[in-house]
Design a protein around this nucleic acid. Structure first.
Lengths: 221, 221
DNA sequence: ATATCAATCAAGTGATTGATTGAATCATAG
DNA sequence: CTATGATTCAATCAATCACTTGATTGATAT
């Protein structure tokens, strides 16, 4: 009896974990974290075929991670609970903390490009004080809202292309994101340099910056 | 290019989730949350065959969720990072929030929706200091021997009926077990309340208690 | 009604998984 | 060095999974 309850519970937990165990579904959830979406939009964003995307969505719905509603012809999906973001966040944290694989991937990222050395945090603090640098926070808006380096602009990768023209051609730009394992800053710098900007990546991310005891602008939750 | 890096990262996250997507492995991790264990002990506790348990352990190690070291002939496994507890906790929270199935299971456990809120760890620490509470450790004797909350009595579910009469009728009783995944404390509280006792469950279990930095009585192995 | 478009279902394929069995490896005791 | 016992590897089978293709449902507009 108690054994079977325990087994049933573990199976339910495992079912949720299983729903998160496919890259395609994580990608879908990441999209849904931005806001509710229809099936076609999700399929396009994630690069999945329509039918495949639909099936993944139904698997997510079976695990109650997403809910759906009809809007005319379209079926709109959304995350069923904000806590799912926390779960995914810890998944990311554990994965990035533990997997040497990730490090190898990131090494490959900066390896085969002519990416410049990242700027040190002390160096950035110095240039910030002088006002000679534009700092971009390329994390999602909610993370920026929760805490960011004073003076930093929040520009997600998706927004970057639109914002690019507003920067002075000779501006010195520094991008940062979640930390050493996060690819956002790498990608932002790569994009900026492709457009000819003088962009570099901050060494580490916000957690390391804070760990140094440097100022952080936080918003009370 | 950046797309493929993103894909690789998602695959790493998915790999961690996949490691959590089998009840057998969750069960193993729950055991390891109590403390490091050898393969045979884990196989016995989880009811897995030795070879099967070993393979699950290696899958967990491949995902870097556990680490191993040799101790003579034995190989001892342990969680690689305390953050894994947080991850499992959110997995549980999301599963229990979203899956009506789980709620039904837990409701079945405590008979009906009669069960009181669990007591917080801070609250228990306070009452322990005042000496106004009886704490029951309802885990198996060997786990109690390895580590338990100072002042707790070890009473397994099997022994509970016999020990019941010894408690004062108005005693305030708090039961704890391995943690949120474990059903022992639920059952103990249900049994105690059926007999009219004022019993509650501790929020979380021993691993969470220890994670809080609260005192634990350990016995050197 | 009928046409149309979005989404889902159904069936098939190739790959992966979990569990079982028996053999092979490894560190230590003798 | 050899024997011993704990652990892991290797091979296997049934089950499940992700993805594709093509048919079907459901809601709307004509």
């Amino acid at each position: 009896m108690s054994i079977s309850f325990k087994k049933a519970l573990l199976e339910e937990y495992a079912r949720v974990a299983h729903a998160l165990s496919a890259p395609a579904r994580l990608s879908i959830l990441e999209q849904l974290a931005q806001g509710e979406r229809g099936v076609e939009a999700l399929a396009e964003k994630t690069g999945l075929s329509l039918a495949n995307c639909s099936q993944h969505l139904q698997q997510l719905r079976r695990s109650s991670l997403v809910t759906s509603r009809r809007d005319g012809k379209a079926v709109i999906y959304q995350l069923s609970d904000a806590k799912i973001l926390n779960l995914m966040d810890f998944l990311r944290i554990v994965a990035e903390r533990n997997l040497a694989q990730v490090e190898r991937i990131l090494r490959g990222l900066s390896g085969d490009e002519d990416a410049p050395e990242p700027i040190s945090r002390a160096d950035l603090a110095f240039r910030l004080a002088k006002g000679t640098v534009t700092v971009l926070d390329v994390r999602p808006a909610d993370e920026y809202a929760a805490a960011h380096i004073p003076g930093a602009l929040n520009v997600t990768l998706a927004e970057l292309e639109q914002v690019l023209p507003k920067f002075a051609a000779d501006a010195e730009i520094v991008a940062y994101c979640r930390g050493p394992y996060c690819v956002y800053a790498h990608q932002a710098v790569a994009a900026l340099r492709q457009h000819g900007f003088n962009a570099r990546r901050l060494e580490g991310g916000l957690p390391e910056w804070r760990e140094d005891g440097r100022p952080v602008l936080t918003t009370a939750q």
